[in-house]
Simulated assay, not measured.
Amino acid sequence: MPTCLIVDDSATMRKIAYKFLSNLGFACSEAVDGAEALAKARLARPDLVLLDWEMPVLNGFATLQALRSEAWDHPPRVVMCTTLNDMDQIIAAMQAGADEYVMKPYDQDILAEKLRTVGLLT
């Protein structure tokens, strides 16, 4: 079963993402900010990190950069989640190593399509 680390400071968004990803066959864990996400990702080595952009402690972009600086045998796919529609920020995230992004609010079908794009669903 593929694994996912859901990173979002909103408990509601984590709950929604957890439901969608569980329905899609993922075993999920959660983190409330980027610092917690890095610690959990280093231990669990998830297949996917669903990463919110705007968070306290360590934001999504800084977390993405830290994840991509790690020496992974199999690096996780990273899908950035944002309410921002600033193309410059989205391009910066993709250049920093994000595999895909999804705009909030999203539904299960949109998330599934993004996961197909990154090769985690068929």
Rank of each mutant, 00 (worst) to 15 (best):
S69L: 01
A11M: 08
V57I: 09
S10F: 08
Y101V: 05
Q65K: 14
F20E: 01
I110Y: 04
H74P: 05
A35D: 05
P46K: 11
L5I: 00
A98Q: 01
D99M: 11
R116N: 04
G60C: 11
S22H: 10
V118K: 12
M13K: 07
D86A: 02
L64C: 11
D88H: 10
I110M: 13
L48C: 12
D99N: 13
G60Y: 11
L111W: 03
M13Q: 13
R42T: 04
V7D: 01
M80T: 05
D99G: 08
V102P: 08
R116L: 04
T63A: 13
D86S: 03
P46H: 06
D8E: 05
L51N: 04
P56W: 02
P2F: 10
K40P: 14
L121Y: 11
A11G: 05
C81H: 00
P76S: 09
E113H: 13
K19F: 12
I91E: 09
D88T: 12
L64D: 07
G34Y: 03
M94A: 09
P2D: 03
G34D: 01
Q89W: 15
Q89L: 14
K19S: 01
G34F: 00
D109Y: 11
D73E: 14
T12P: 07
L24C: 02
A98C: 06
A27Q: 15
Q65N: 07
W72C: 03
M94C: 12
D109G: 10
S69C: 05
I16Y: 04
E70N: 05
W53C: 08
M1R: 14
V79L: 10
P46I: 07
G34Q: 02
E113A: 15
R42F: 06
D99W: 08
T82Q: 06
A17D: 06
Q108C: 09
E113P: 04
T83Q: 12
A37V: 09
K15F: 12
M13R: 06
W53M: 12
L5F: 06
S69D: 13
D9E: 01
T117N: 12
Y101D: 07
S29I: 01
K19Y: 10
R77Y: 07
R68K: 12
M103V: 15
A35N: 11
R68S: 05
G34V: 00
A71H: 06
V32G: 05
A96Y: 13
Q95C: 06
Y106H: 08
A93Q: 02
A71Y: 00
D107T: 02
L21D: 01
D33E: 05
L50E: 00
T122P: 15
L120R: 10
Q108R: 14
A62P: 03
L84A: 08
K19V: 09
A44C: 09
G119K: 14
P75G: 10
